[in-house]
Design a protein around this nucleic acid. Structure first.
Lengths: 244, 244
DNA sequence: TGTACATCAGTGAACGCGCGTTCACTGATGTAC
DNA sequence: TGTACATCAGTGAACGCGCGTTCACTGATGTAC
């Protein structure tokens, strides 16, 4: 009985499996193209099928429904952003937390500029009626996890600065509010530090969203040079808040 | 010839004009209800007509197109948010800039929570293909104008703090980047102050967007008490950046 | 004040379009023995 | 190795829906004289 070995071999080369894989990718690629061209809410199963030259019903062999496809795309976008941030951060010397933070910020911005619609897919207006399933939470927190690791690590490496925001005593209400995230974060980090870390995190996405949605029009000069200079000055501010 | 007087009088009571006004309001109200229920991109002319018991074509006597209606709704939303912020700010003693800033922040958050979908209409994912016309820029800057006024006013009232972010010298690139907004802001405000004011401004909207789009799930405890405590701690951070 | 005409709000049918999803089906690939 | 059966990818027609916008029209309101 070399049953298992044969099964495994067969599967590994199976024409069906290979085609399936290839076409699955093609569906996703077409979907991403569509999102890049006109945003997530005009994503259409029929348009994807048209693009691939298939019957519109064929897509349903690959994704159970439009929502299932959307979920996969959301997960992929979070992963793509997470990967970009991680690899940018990894390139910086471990003992330069400020530099690592900068790298993350720039990676997020760069990725967002290069993938506007994917960015809005994950950080834009929630799609009404769409409830993100559990599978999205892991990929969704990759950037946050990076930041938290950085916060913890650099906190342990340096003496507490007494005049920094981090040392401000937190209210009991804030302490309670932080309970959920606290579950995954070392107690070395004070409530105030954790809260301001989070706040900086949301400020980063606020800044990127502002730029991408045109709120800087007539405010900051158009063009990458100016936009980047302003973004850099924002990073300086965040670094100061974190007292790195 | 009392022609003009008569025309004016007639117009003032004109049944047609009154009806027109009433129905115009009804169309807008129905549109806002629809947005509140399911967001801006499912706003439909036909659904509004249905709601009002009119023929679907009748709406076109009031708004030239869906885009025109959307524009009006966007303007109204900006105005509604602006009014909320202004009146909250006006209630605080003039010589308490920190309090005035707090009031603005809370007003923005309160308005956004009470009008989620309207908030996303103006600060959410840009509608692809929709180009905001010139009429939206005035209302769009009401909150920003308040903040800038506050920045200018409180800057003039106090000595420059040397160790604050505000005193960090700005790069030439940042100076150039700020040119557009500079046109409307006193030179008393340094580049660094202006940039960090702006940054705080976008952080405010980042924080509100994060809360509204559920990014705080499993991070900050659900419920107004906790959410508000966290928001308050964020305001503290922003105030520190502005050194108020 | 009364009459003739102009303006305007609202109707209902139609155009032309796109969508998600289901279903019975064919023909190719894979599996068991 | 060859045969019988099971699985699966893809088809094309159909269901039932909703949308924005146009158009010729009717009847009410407003205006000029």
């Amino acid at each position: 009985m070399w049953k298992y070995a044969v099964m495994a071999m067969t599967k590994a080369v199976s024409i069906r499996a290979m085609n399936r894989e290839r076409i699955n990718e093609a569906v996703l690629a077409a979907a991403r193209d569509q999102i890049a061209a006109s945003g997530a809410n005009s994503l259409s199963m029929r348009a994807i099928a048209r693009e691939l030259g298939m019957a519109s019903s064929a897509i349903y062999r690959y994704f159970e429904s439009r929502d299932a496809l959307l979920t996969k795309l959301i997960i992929d976008s979070y992963d793509s952003l997470g990967r970009a941030a991680e690899s940018a951060e990894a390139r910086i010397s471990r003992d330069d937390p400020g530099g690592r933070f900068r790298a993350i910020c720039h990676a997020v911005r760069r990725w967002a500029l290069a993938n506007r619609h994917e960015y809005f897919l994950i950080y834009g207006t929630p799609v009404p009626g769409y409830q993100a399933p559990q599978d999205t939470v892991g990929p969704a927190t990759r950037v946050a996890d990076l930041m938290i690791a950085l916060l913890v690590e650099s906190d342990m490496a340096r003496p507490r600065l007494s005049q920094s925001v981090a040392a401000t005593p937190a209210t009991a209400a804030l302490h309670r509010a932080l309970a959920p995230i606290r579950a995954g974060v070392s107690n070395e980090i004070s409530d105030a530090e954790l809260a301001s870390g989070l706040s900086v995190f949301s400020a980063l996405f606020g800044a990127v969203s502002f730029e991408l949605s045109g709120q800087l029009h007539n405010v900051i000069k158009d063009g990458e040079a100016s936009r980047r200079a302003y973004f850099d000055s924002q990073i300086d501010g965040w670094l100061a808040v974190l007292s790195w």
